[in-house]
Amino acid sequence: MAGLGYRGEMADWDMSAVEADFFEVAPENWIKRDRSPLYKLLDSGRPVMLHGVSLSLGGQAPIQQEFLMAVRELMTDLGTDYYSDHLAASGDAHQLYDLFPIPFTDREVIRISDRIKEVQNILGLRIAVENTTYYTNVGEMNEVEFLMQVVERADCNILLDINNIAVNHKNHHLTNVHHFVSHVDMQRVTYIHVAGHEFDERFGLYIDTHSQTVETETREVALELFQQHHIPILLEWDNDIPALTTINQELSCLKTFIST
């Protein structure tokens, strides 16, 4: 089962020709806009999940109830129970419209899980948090320990991004994909993200650009998890979006049976 992140650039595409089983959109892009493209996706019998970018679970600003009520209304309108955002900050007490690292510390485990609980209490449902790419960070524990402590204390789900784990391993050489995945409670994983990334020589870092095909190892780990745990996989392609045929080829690769 393979889904696709639906982007504005796809507005002119014949979406009936896209071989995705489900879609994902950022609620921030649709709360105040005409939703007819999303209704067409729903009419084709394929669900639409919500994956936010601005909740700023790691930030210092108070959780905005009004925003969450707008998310809740969109969830009802689209008939979905799936809402996730990133285990990251969008800024300090303000927004900077990017994703910044949360220090991997005991103190932040408590603060962030409390914020997730607050979000879940307002929405009246369990959300998922995505493990994110980080380009530099501090803290006394490793990333997967931090992730698991947060989600267990908050009792929330996980949106497991295999590409982010691969990018972090290339940049920091700390936790490889197999080791990371082996420490994740798969019962909490709602679905899996895969994407491509690029090396940026200006920083000497791999950047999570979502602008390339999915690497073989990332795809194979995702397929293994699908085969072992029936966890759906979703392709994110946000920049330099290719032709529909290329997207379909990528989706087809995400539906291929592999021998494990």
Binding site: L96, Y97, D98, F100, Y134, Y135, T136, N137, V138, D200, R202, F203, G204, L205, I207
Partner: peptide, 14 residues
């Protein structure tokens, strides 16, 4: 505790 290259990447992305 933060790396110079990582900090420059974040500044660039913003």
């Amino acid at each position: 505790g933060y790396s110079e290259s990582g900090m420059r990447a974040y500044r660039h992305l913003v």
